[in-house]
Design a protein around this nucleic acid. Sequence first.
DNA 1: ACTGTAGGCCAACGCCTGTTGACACGCCAG
DNA 2: CTGGCGTGTCAACAGGCGTTGGCCTACAGT
Lengths: 191, 191
Amino acid sequence: MTSEPPPAPRRSDATRAAILDAARERFAADGYDRATIRAIARDAGIDPSMVMRYYGNKEGLFAAASEIDLRLPELGAMPGRHIGAVLVSHFLDRWEHDDVLTAMLRVGVTNAAGAERVVKVFREQLLPVTAGVCPLPEEVPRRAALAASQIMGMALARYVLRIPPAVDMTRDEVIAWLAPTIQRYLTAAAP
Amino acid sequence: MTSEPPPAPRRSDATRAAILDAARERFAADGYDRATIRAIARDAGIDPSMVMRYYGNKEGLFAAASEIDLRLPELGAMPGRHIGAVLVSHFLDRWEHDDVLTAMLRVGVTNAAGAERVVKVFREQLLPVTAGVCPLPEEVPRRAALAASQIMGMALARYVLRIPPAVDMTRDEVIAWLAPTIQRYLTAAAP
DNA sequence: ACTGTAGGCCAACGCCTGTTGACACGCCAG
DNA sequence: CTGGCGTGTCAACAGGCGTTGGCCTACAGT
């Protein structure tokens, strides 16, 4: 499946990367519709037609720009009581140090393909990690969805809508409040 | 302030209402950019120029269409232990029976003015209602923001992104899981 | 009955969009 | 040295957008 024979380094790799960087930034800041190919090309310092040559069309560019790896830690290898805090802390890091997640959220809300992409990340990355820590296997998807709802909701309030009290909370305060919630969603007995 | 002397019924009230209905639907379904004035006018069965005549421009139309009343119940008049369940249940109702909230969420994410509108609703409608139930007055904004983050997060997962496990939960399951979270955010001792 | 005005439609504007095709440069193989 | 291919620019396209102004129609006040 994932076996492109040699990576085959091309002379244009720098340009491709510049386009991708600019695209991620624009998609994160403006959402799918307002992030124009022309603006992305301008940011990358090249002609709009290069974007088409390398990524086919706007959808292809978005697909390439929203290749996301949450880099979730292995939860099995740590004391069960810290799972909530570790997850919240990890997501705060990811959200603050790069704008792919903001882009994913913004585009997921505006664009059907974007929403599917979010669902895919949820299914392929969050589900496996939470599988090991939930009491009953059949409850895993539901519990993961609950956890995701709280994490995305805080990201929405804090990084996208910028609701002042959510922005003003320190990182540690956010963790202190959210960790017990995530902990309960993933590990506590069903209500 | 809110004293337009007579309501002054106009012959065009039906048209105005049709435009507003169509606008709310389109903004909810498509977000700010994709919801075009032409499409809204087509839905309302009139000419695009009528929209301009009555609402000035697209921003004015959006401002009129996103006049939101959460219709939050008085929390002071009920047993303190039920606040979480009542709030979650109320928001589920609002979200399912009318698409203004979805519109608000979608536009809040794509549009700066939309985000400000969400913050305004938070400040003017959620804050006052939660003020009566939090232990310390100075914690009210933070606690309300936490509750908002969980409620918006679930709405995002369930009604916008349509993450399958979040969609599949019954209304009662959502309440059973979320109510204790909201309850804790609003009333429990700070962590 | 006459007239002013509000309600409504139509055609057009200037702008910006995604996308395309033709053309120019420079590297590398033969 | 020469040809081809990869990299890049430029100019243009068709279509959609928000917005504007002119014109027609029908009702309301006198």
